[in-house]
């Protein structure tokens, strides 16, 4: 314990101090802890969650808010996939493989456009329309292409490539901004009965404020309790997740 008196500590001294303190803390913890107390509580059935309140079922607003969050994550997925496809289009040198990539790209752009319109997410719809058209044009013309002139055709469509890339990047940026806006918004489910709602993951509950009176399904309750912090008496907020946690959702 002489390291305790030193002015500077090396790793060994620090480890020695931590080890000594840890051993003492463990002895203390053993003295104050009685696992039998816990077992008695389990035996008494007090481990079961009590529900003495009468919460109200989830409002339409709450249900819609969760649904919008789900859709926002899916939208970002779609934008990401589109971005990848656009990059893939101009890397394809094999004519056989170019056609399906182009077809996927065209249909993805179409889906993106529809979803953005449905979600009222501001994005450059004009470019998206043009690019989708350009992709469709290439698809239609693919029969006339061969390995030799493919490169020159793609070069001549340089403007198309640039537009496609811009659209894909813009779509991705819009999707991320849209998603961030929704998830940073606090959602209040105080006193609501969410026991019949399913949540794909904790990411969906980010920044949700809930109270003792809020009801959850057992699975959701586990997720919520582990990730919540108390913000007032009987009021809790689910902590934010890192954005990549939302990537577990499949489109």
């Amino acid at each position: 314990m002489t390291a305790f008196f030193r002015r500077s500590l090396d790793d060994d001294a620090l480890d020695a101090m931590l080890e000594a303190a840890d051993a003492e803390l463990l002895a203390h913890a053993r003295a104050v802890t009685d696992p039998f107390d816990t077992i008695r509580i389990l035996h008494a059935g007090l481990g079961q969650r009590r529900r003495t309140d009468s919460p109200s079922p989830p409002s339409v607003v709450t249900r819609e808010a969760f649904e919008r969050r789900r859709r926002a994550v899916k939208l970002r997925y779609l934008a990401k996939a589109s971005e990848g496809l656009v990059a893939g289009v101009f890397n394809e040198v094999s004519l056989d493989r170019l056609a399906p990539v182009l077809a996927s790209c065209g249909s993805n752009l179409g889906r993106l456009r529809t979803r953005y319109v449905n979600e009222h997410v501001p994005t450059d719809k004009r470019w998206m329309n043009e690019c989708q058209w350009a992709v469709q044009f290439i698809i239609l013309q693919r029969q006339r292409l061969n390995e030799t002139n493919l490169a020159s055709v793609l070069t001549s469509l340089g403007a198309c490539e640039e537009r496609l890339r811009r659209v894909a990047q813009g779509a991705m940026a819009a999707a991320i901004a849209h998603e961030r806006g929704l998830f940073e918004m606090t959602m209040d489910v105080s006193g609501e009965d969410l026991s019949h709602m399913t949540f794909e993951g904790p990411w969906l509950l980010e920044n949700v404020v809930w109270t003792d009176a809020t009801r959850w399904s057992p699975r959701a309750y586990d997720m919520v309790v582990m990730r919540s912090r108390r913000i007032a008496a009987g009021v809790y907020q689910v902590l934010g997740e890192s954005p990549h946690d939302r990537d577990h959702l499949c489109v």
Binding site: D37, A44, L46, D212, V225, S228, R229, R230, G234
Partner: peptide, 16 residues
């Protein structure tokens, strides 16, 4: 998490 939330909803109604 439970410690960081000292007045957790379930702790309050626990009785031995």
């Amino acid at each position: 998490r439970s410690w960081q939330r000292p007045n957790g909803c379930r702790r309050r109604d626990r009785e031995i």
